[in-house]
Design a protein around this nucleic acid. Structure first.
Length: 277
DNA sequence: CGCCAGGATACCC
DNA sequence: GGGTATCATGGC
């Protein structure tokens, strides 16, 4: 087990931020199970000597090789938040309430499938669909540290030959053929999702939006949460309304390479409290 | 019952 | 180029 002390990190805020669909609450509200990169992790948050302590169920080796990067612990969020315009009370409040959100570095393939599923349905239902998908097409493992059983996120090759009927049985509706097509593309060397981390983000956007069913919103989500391009800016129905408040393009113009982080603060805040007046 | 959900597409003019 | 009907499905 690893215990770390880190600022700008809140498990509940991250779990509810709408970027991760496989964080599940455990026995209390500050404990979650996570499955990512084929591994299982339990995260617990508590106060020790008035400091926030995060305990992780993994070994030090696994923390260094997987979870440190996944949890984006090497990015300085204080520095990013310092860019916030001090006269913008809405964004300041959004940050104050959600200053524990980090942009997780998740697998691009998983983000592609996740946000193809999540289009036009609510987050809760998307989570349920993804869990069913993992149980059916993922692999079952037992975590060495906790003894818990878990299902990995399916590989592209595990989904490429699934029939539309079987895919639809998961509850994905009309998205069935889009998911199968994405799996086929990613099963071949034509599209290497992991290699997209190393190419210009605009090139990645172009490749992504050329995939059937991937529009601007899904592409931005894959770019932000899967490629860690923090200048990515997913505009969903909530952010659309936030845009109306600020004026179109204002946030992107003002916060440039970090607008994706601001977007997460605003998304979380407006979902909880409603839109700016 | 109708409306909405981290939308995208095909088709219209 | 900009509008819009349509696409499944579950929760409210």
């Amino acid at each position: 087990m690893q215990t770390i002390f880190v600022e700008n990190f809140d498990v509940k805020q991250i779990a509810e931020s709408g970027q991760c669909f496989r964080w599940h609450q455990l026995e209390d509200e500050n404990a979650y199970s996570v499955v990512a990169f084929g591994k299982y992790l339990e995260i617990r948050q508590q106060k020790i000597d008035n400091k926030t302590a995060i305990s992780l169920s993994c070994t030090e080796e696994e923390f260094e090789s997987v979870w440190r990067k996944y949890l984006d612990l090497d990015t300085d969020y204080k520095k990013i938040a310092a860019l916030i315009d001090k006269t913008d009370s809405f964004l300041l409040n959004a940050y104050t309430e959600n200053d524990g959100i980090r942009i997780l570095q998740q697998q691009p393939w998983e983000m592609l499938i996740t946000f193809l599923i999540a289009q036009n349905i609510n987050i809760l239902r998307a989570q349920a669909i993804i869990e069913r998908m993992c149980e059916k097409y993922g692999r079952k493992f037992q975590d060495e540290n906790t003894g818990k059983w878990f299902y990995t996120f399916p590989e592209p090759t595990a989904m490429e030959s699934v029939s539309c009927t079987d895919m639809r049985a998961l509850g994905v509706g009309y998205r069935d053929s889009r998911l199968i097509n994405a799996a086929k593309i990613c099963s071949t060397p034509v599209v290497d999702m992991n290699a997209m981390r190393d190419i210009p983000s605009d090139t990645a956007r172009l490749i992504l939006t050329n995939i059937y069913g991937v529009g601007a919103k899904v592409a931005e989500c894959v770019s932000l949460f899967g490629l860690h391009n923090l200048e990515s800016y997913p505009v969903d129905t909530w952010v659309q309304k936030i845009e109306e408040h600020y004026g179109e393009g204002f946030l992107q113009h003002t916060y440039g390479e970090y607008v994706g982080v601001m977007q997460q603060y605003l998304f979380a805040y407006s979902r909880k409290h409603g839109l700016p007046v």
